[in-house]
Simulated scan of single mutants.
Amino acid sequence: MTQPDQLINEAAKIYKVLSNSTRIKILYYLRHHNGEVDVKTIVNDLSLAQPVVSKQLGILRRYQLVCSRKVGTRVFYILDDPHIVQLTDDMIEHVKHEIKGEPHPKNLYQVHQ
């Protein structure tokens, strides 16, 4: 397998991770907090079950989208890759245009042809 193929395959794995709305909610939640947030706070603020949050955080950690630090029995999380938030921001902007039926900003692909 060539290097571009490996990168494409890894990118596809990340897109699969981001295909879950709960994981995107957690990423956005962490984005808007300064510093680390413990699991209990995430559970309470997002009104999600603790096992659901823990499972999704484990997946996000496995793909290096968040990192964690344990203090006693508490585990704290923080974003590990701000590029992922930008990627999801861009997708949400795309969806806004599709839902509202508004034209997209100037098509950069057409400009460079």
Rank of each mutant, 00 (worst) to 15 (best):
Y109N: 12
K13A: 12
L46H: 03
V43I: 09
G35H: 09
A12V: 11
K70G: 03
D90H: 00
H33P: 04
Y63R: 06
I26V: 07
K55V: 09
I42Q: 04
H97P: 03
R23T: 02
Y15Q: 14
I78F: 06
D5P: 00
M1P: 06
L87D: 00
S54A: 15
T88A: 06
H32A: 04
Q110H: 09
L87K: 05
Q86L: 12
I26P: 00
Y109M: 13
K96E: 09
Q64T: 00
V53P: 00
T41K: 10
E98G: 10
P105T: 00
H32T: 09
S68G: 04
Y28P: 02
L30R: 01
R61K: 13
I14L: 14
L79W: 03
H112E: 15
I92L: 15
V17W: 02
E10I: 09
S68I: 01
V53E: 00
V17Y: 07
K96W: 08
T88K: 03
N9Y: 08
L27D: 02
Y109L: 15
E10D: 09
S54M: 13
V85I: 15
A49S: 13
F76W: 10
E10P: 00
D5E: 10
N107I: 00
G101A: 14
K70S: 06
I26D: 01
Q50T: 12
T41C: 06
V17C: 05
V95K: 06
K25F: 03
Q50W: 02
I84W: 03
A49C: 02
Q50I: 08
N20L: 01
K100G: 13
L27V: 03
T22W: 00
Q86Y: 10
T73C: 01
D80Q: 13
F76Y: 14
P105S: 11
H97Q: 14
E93I: 07
P4V: 06
T2N: 10
L65V: 13
D89Q: 15
Q50V: 06
V52D: 02
V52W: 01
R62Y: 05
K96C: 12
Q6V: 12
A12M: 10
Q86M: 11
K70T: 13
Y109F: 14
L65M: 13
E93V: 04
S21Y: 02
K16D: 08
A11L: 14
T2Y: 08
L7P: 01
G58N: 11
N107V: 01
Q110P: 00
C67I: 00
Y29C: 08
K13L: 13
Q56F: 00
Q56E: 15
N34I: 05
Y63W: 06
Q50M: 10
P103M: 07
E10C: 08
E36H: 06
A12R: 14
Y28C: 04
V37I: 08
K96H: 07
I99T: 15
L18F: 00
L46V: 02
N44F: 04
T2Q: 10
D89K: 15
E10S: 10
N9M: 04
H104S: 09
V66N: 00
T41Q: 05
H32F: 12
D81N: 15
Y77G: 04
